[in-house]
Design a protein around this nucleic acid. Sequence first.
DNA 1: GAGGACCGATTGTCGGACAATCAGACGAAC
DNA 2: GTTCGTCTGATTGTCCGACAATCGGTCCTC
Lengths: 225, 225
Amino acid sequence: MYESLELEQSSTVDRAADALRRALFGGDLEPGTPLREVALADSLGIARSTVREALGLLATEGLVHRIPYRGVVVAALEPGDVHDVITARLALEEAGVRAWPHAVAEAKQAVHEAVEAYATAARTGAGPGPLAEAHLAVHRSLVGLTGSNRLLTTAAALNGELRLALAGVDRRRGNAEQQVSQHRDLVRVIESGDSEAAVAALRAHLADAEESMRDAVTADRAAPD
Amino acid sequence: MYESLELEQSSTVDRAADALRRALFGGDLEPGTPLREVALADSLGIARSTVREALGLLATEGLVHRIPYRGVVVAALEPGDVHDVITARLALEEAGVRAWPHAVAEAKQAVHEAVEAYATAARTGAGPGPLAEAHLAVHRSLVGLTGSNRLLTTAAALNGELRLALAGVDRRRGNAEQQVSQHRDLVRVIESGDSEAAVAALRAHLADAEESMRDAVTADRAAPD
DNA sequence: GAGGACCGATTGTCGGACAATCAGACGAAC
DNA sequence: GTTCGTCTGATTGTCCGACAATCGGTCCTC
């Protein structure tokens, strides 16, 4: 009885980390901007040690970099990082695609739901942030096909690193509907059961994504408005 | 000039985390043992806040679990976790194996060196700890074939979770030489260029490993000597 | 202009303090 | 006898203030 009840407890560190994440994804902070501990502490109204812990969290997520005795700076996605992350994502999502035939029904269902959520987000004209989130949720659902929670969490971490840059890409392209149909096609190929074709489609899709993202990153670097 | 020079700076947190890791891998701590902050603090001769940060590190590595207001306990590898970790490792190493034809020469070289190091470790009768480390290094070198640093770090994290249990397996089996030759065969198949055969061999190898590890974990659970 | 000594700013670590929360014991009420 | 409230001790979460270590930059000397 009462199995569905749940009460999430929120520590101050978590709330601080959330606030910082929102600020990062909001795009107010340029990559390279230093995050001063004392300034954040009395800006958030919490102690410096708590800020430190929150920043440590973000650092392990790859959203910021901590340099000893120099402080924490907003992570900048180098072009080389884009390739690294995309390679990693390909490995994870390819594993998911290959696992489709043996995947549990819920995981398959989750893929469809993620695509539909992405479609409605695009149709209703959601902002760049939520749209990017819905997009990445589709890719995460592919990883979910493997059935490994650990792969899912690493996929989420990788997505976190990309979320900022990806919002820029969507803003730049603005062809959300086309993006959605491209993902619909991808899922259709996956469902067909032809693993090799599905992997090839995924590879092409991610190669395309890498190119767009690399352009976005270098553009940001050239003209950081 | 002087490119080879380097001076690693060690923070107190890192040294504390290392000490705790050694204690964990040393096997003195049973899974489920609570790690009290104040006790560790004056046992290590450092402040409690520093201990907290070090424990946070280990928690993100999955070596310990932190329960709010309850403390951190040594992580216990449930049988379900074994499957989860092995599935994740299979995804990563399979990606590496498939990348063999396009991998850079250094990465291929690293695989051979890892196997040789494993062989000498087995031949010279290294202890269970170093032997397990050499074993896992071989598998990590496979992930290195993908060329993605992020995949390598997640592989390292997954290996960390297994290191404890794996030492138990090697101790139990004691057929180190046979294990080495099995890995030699695996690498030979990978080198052959037949990706499908290589993946099949890897899958069989990991399935075998999963079984051994599951047995070891359940045995530890039944008789935690 | 190269090298060295200072300086302000920031982080890393420490120690102590207090509130929040937990597990367990104890006892009262039905 | 079970359930519930209360209490208590232990432990963690958070805060605060302090100081040493380290960094980047400036100035000064030669």
